[in-house]
Design a protein around this nucleic acid. Structure first.
Lengths: 332, 332
DNA sequence: ATGAAAGCGCTAACAT
DNA sequence: ATGTTAGCGCTTTCAT
């Protein structure tokens, strides 16, 4: 059987209360006693049960992380920094890939609550915002990541999507492209990127056309399909702004398959600057998010929220950075 | 406060024992009572506490997953299938990236034990095999993934690394390459891939040279450095077999940077067939692992182990598949 | 078919 | 400075 606090107490010749105190560094304990207990703990290889202590009201030292898909490089890179920072602070993280699927979102949220996670990091869009509102009402520590939705009244950390969309589109516009298609997801971030794009058009004195937006979800395969679609219905398109790297790469690959030279015949801008962006040829012009900073920050923030027991509802926007590589060139 | 079993019992006018029984579908309960309790649970949105039930000896419904690095596409893809399968079976998974760092390995193992995870999936090499042996001795359900080490006496799931190494090298050899460098990690899988490579040499009646092995760890950056090293000390090298895609891609990129045309001047074979392999240009010849099957299987197996409370110690090898793309060609 | 009560491993208030 | 004890929310005998 498991070594319990009783075993330690017995062997050390003290009460369990004393042992508990040395574990948690509370109360007043004589140094010699402390030392004795320490020794016994080591000797017995005693590991305090998180379950038991959580039951008494202490924390579970566990965070829940919801992302659309952990196998998407952007989110796995994000997850990695979150994991590192969490572990540094003594927390472990349970990962949940929601696929932007309403049922899964709900199920995972329930699961995580049953597990009494200390806090939730939500980097996945929620079809049913009410679920989130409920969490807030229940005062469950919660920080949104890559999901800037002020209406929720919780802390949001994200890149400045508006500005990112603006930069990406301005870049294309300044290269002379006017026939630009946008590949977007059904998320708040995509929405803001589109607004940024629209703003760029206006800045350039051009009119933005909603019909150039194609809705889809992040995957290389979808990127390919989108290009097929574009070529069929808008063959005059000279540039594509994809709201994430995976889509951009799908476009890039299909272009290659169809003999369309990038960037000569088609310029492409992605978003996220994942590892994928560097490994393609031509390498992908994209908008970088400061993944490390964001991941680190979100953990610090959720920890703070947990400690203070109040939802701080800040709104933190990081600056995106347009990284010009080889998939964009002058329109001709 | 949280809704507890007492609240439900009160409101339903029964004892907590009865409620417990309907939750777990144990004992004999009158249908009408069951219905009544069900209704109250729904009404109160009651969520049984995993903590409390775990404390009574039931499972925590949690798995620990140890990988070298979740942001490595191979492992994030693997993690995704594991996560999916686990959730299907009602389990959540805590992720731990060890970086093949002995301290982290130890720390995470302790952490996961304190959390009383039901089982461990270990896809990370262990510097200190004793830690693993201890786990086995403590009878903690444990399955090794991508780590075929029969000496451990536990179930191992992996691709047939020997055969993978053989295939990769045979491919190169049959193209006429004889001056092949190998980029390997310090893992059991790399070791077997090297043996496979050696076997290929022997099959071709050639002698394998240990000095052509370069040890490193998985990352694009390391791949680049390795090529620099090779070019300096073995400029006659015509082909490289990298034990994972990241290294292969590093090589590919550096080759491009240095003006070495792939595959004309240098052939490259990777391993894993991650998303990266398809997105490069030229696309990467690599050895595919059946990630989905392996991920699914490992969860089923650990579940079985948990249920039966005995370590089954099977050894499951999946067949690798050489995928010939564009980074390999005849030596000339 | 249902309930009372002991116990899981721990914390924290209260005694001593 | 240390110990006693009452919970925490649940499961599981054992009564009834």
């Amino acid at each position: 059987m498991r070594v319990t606090i009783y075993d330690v107490a017995d062997k050390a010749g003290v009460s369990i209360a004393t042992v508990s105190k040395v574990i948690n560094n509370t109360g007043k304990i004589r140094d010699s006693t402390r030392q004795k207990v320490w020794n016994v703990m080591k000797e017995l290889n005693y590991q305090p049960s998180v379950m038991a202590s959580a039951l008494t009201g202490k924390s579970t030292e566990t965070l829940g992380l919801l992302v659309p898909d952990i196998s998407n490089p952007f989110f796995s890179e994000l997850a990695r920094t979150i994991e590192d920072r969490s572990h540094e602070q003594g927390l472990s993280v349970i990962m949940c890939s929601t696929d932007d699927n309403e049922e899964k979102e709900k199920k995972y949220l329930e699961l995580l609550q049953r597990k009494q996670v200390d806090g939730l990091i939500i980097a996945s869009s929620f079809n049913d915002r009410n679920l989130l509102k409920q969490l807030v009402k229940q005062n469950i520590p919660l920080v949104m990541l890559t999901q800037d939705d002020p209406s929720l009244g919780v802390t949001c950390i994200s890149v400045d999507d508006f500005s990112g969309g603006f930069e990406a589109t301005s870049h294309l516009l300044s290269l002379g492209h006017e026939n630009i298609a946008i590949l977007a997801e059904n998320t708040s971030s995509s929405k803001m990127r589109i607004f940024g794009s629209r703003d760029a058009y206006e800045t350039f004195g051009l009119t933005f056309n909603d019909s150039r937006i194609i809705r889809t979800t992040a995957s290389v395969a979808n990127g390919k399909n989108c290009l097929d679609h574009i070529l069929e219905y808008n063959p005059a398109t000279t540039a594509i702004f994809a709201c994430n790297d995976q889509l951009a790469i799908g476009v890039l690959q299909r272009a290659k398959e169809r003999g369309i030279v990038v960037p000569d015949k088609l310029s492409i801008v992605g978003f996220d600057n994942t590892i994928l962006a560097e490994t393609t040829v031509p390498s992908l012009t994209t908008v970088a998010q400061p993944i490390k900073e964001m991941g680190s920050k979100v953990v610090d923030l959720i920890l703070e929220t947990i400690k203070k027991q109040v939802q701080p509802k800040e709104r933190i926007l990081y600056n995106p950075e347009l990284i010009i590589r080889e998939t964009t060139s002058k329109c001709r």
